[in-house]
C-alpha cells in the first residue's frame, strides 16, 4: 500500500472515534453521569442509538466521553515525552561520546529496563489511581523513546557538511541543535509521536481496566470494558463497543504513523530531483 493511501485510511479510522470525542467536550446526547437504573439495558432506540448500560447511562454518550479521557491522557503523555525526551536526545547527540551523553543514555536504559505497565501500576498504587497519575506514568516511559530516537537521528546529521559549515560560522552546539538539527528531524518526531499516541491510548485503557486510571464517574473506554466484563454473555455489546473503539483508534493511529513515515522517509525523498 502506498504511503498516501495508508495515511488516509489510518487518519479516517482514527477520526471515527476521535472526532466524536472532541464533540463530547461541548455536547453529548445524554449526561454521562446521570444514572437511571430503571432504564438499564435498553435496546437501541431513537433516544439511545446504542442503548444503555447496567446503570441506565447512554452508551453513545459514554463512548464519546470515554474517548475524551483516552485522548487527553495520551496527548499529555506524548507531550511529556517530547518535551523532555527531545531536548535530552539533542543534548546527548551534541555531546556525543562525552560524559553527558553517557549519563543521558544510561539513564534512558535504566527507564527502558523496567516493564512500563508494571511501573505505571506501581506509580498509581503509590500516589493513588487517577487520570493525572496515569498521564505521568505513561509520559515517563515516553521520554526515553523520544530521547533515543532524536539522538540517533541527530547523530547522523552531525556528520554532514552543512553542520560543519555552521560550526565554521561560529554557531555553538545549542544553537546548531535548535536551528539545524531539530527542523531536520521533525518529520521523524511526528511519525514517532503518532505511534506513541496510539500506545498511550492503549496504556490508558489498560490502566483504567485494572482500575488504576480514570475514576468514576469519569467515563473511559478501559473502565467501560472492565464494567462490562461480568455481563459479557447477557449484554455482549457493552464490551464489544468500547473494545472496537480502542482497536479501531489504535489501528488508525498506527496506520497514520506508518503512512507519515513512508511519505517523509528521507531515503525515499532523496530519489526525487
Amino acid at each position: 500500500m502506498s504511503g498516501r493511501r495508508t495515511l488516509i485510511l489510518g487518519a479516517g479510522l482514527a477520526a471515527l472515534f476521535l472526532v466524536p470525542a472532541l464533540v463530547s467536550l461541548v455536547w453529548t446526547p445524554h449526561d454521562v453521569a446521570a444514572i437511571s437504573v430503571g432504564d438499564k439495558f435498553l435496546p437501541p432506540s431513537a433516544a439511545h442509538p446504542l442503548g444503555t448500560d447496567h446503570l441506565g447511562r447512554d452508551l453513545l454518550s459514554m463512548l464519546m466521553a470515554g474517548g475524551r479521557t483516552s485522548l487527553a491522557v495520551a496527548l499529555v503523555a506524548v507531550g511529556i515525552g517530547v518535551a523532555a525526551g527531545v531536548p535530552l536526545g539533542l543534548l546527548a547527540a551534541a555531546a556525543r561520546g562525552r560524559l553527558i551523553d553517557e549519563i543521558v543514555m544510561r539513564g534512558n536504559d535504566l527507564v527502558f529496563a523496567f516493564p512500563s505497565l508494571v511501573i505505571a501500576i506501581l506509580i498509581t498504587a503509590v500516589w493513588g489511581p487517577s487520570a493525572v497519575n496515569a498521564i505521568l506514568a505513561i509520559g515517563i516511559f515516553n521520554i526515553p523513546v523520544f530521547a533515543r530516537m532524536s539522538r540517533g537521528a541527530a547523530l547522523s546529521l552531525w556528520t554532514l557538511d552543512f553542520i560543519r559549515a555552521a560550526q565554521v560560522c561560529g554557531k555553538g552546539r545549542a544553537r546548531i541543535s535548535a536551528e539545524h538539527i531539530l527542523p531536520n528531524i521533525l518529520n521523524l518526531l511526528i511519525v514517532q509521536a503518532t505511534i506513541q499516541f496510539s500506545l498511550g491510548i492503549l496504556a490508558e485503557a489498560a490502566l483504567s481496566y485494572v482500575g488504576l486510571g480514570a475514576q468514576p464517574p469519569t467515563p473511559s473506554w478501559g473502565r467501560m470494558l472492565a464494567e462490562a466484563q461480568t455481563l459479557i454473555y447477557t449484554q455482549p455489546m457493552l464490551a464489544v463497543l468500547p473494545g472496537i473503539a480502542i482497536v479501531v483508534t489504535v489501528l488508525g493511529l498506527n496506520l497514520t504513523g506508518e503512512g507519515l513515515r513512508d511519505l517523509t522517509d528521507p531515503r525515499l525523498r532523496r530519489v526525487l530531483p
Binding site: 554532514l160 557538511d161 552543512f162 560543519r164 559549515a165
Partner: peptide, 14 residues
C-alpha cells in the same frame, strides 16, 4: 571560511 567536499550535504535542505 571553508568549502567542503559533499555538494549534497553542504546545505541545510530545509
Amino acid at each position: 571560511q571553508a568549502v567542503f567536499q559533499d555538494p549534497y550535504g553542504s546545505f541545510d535542505p530545509r
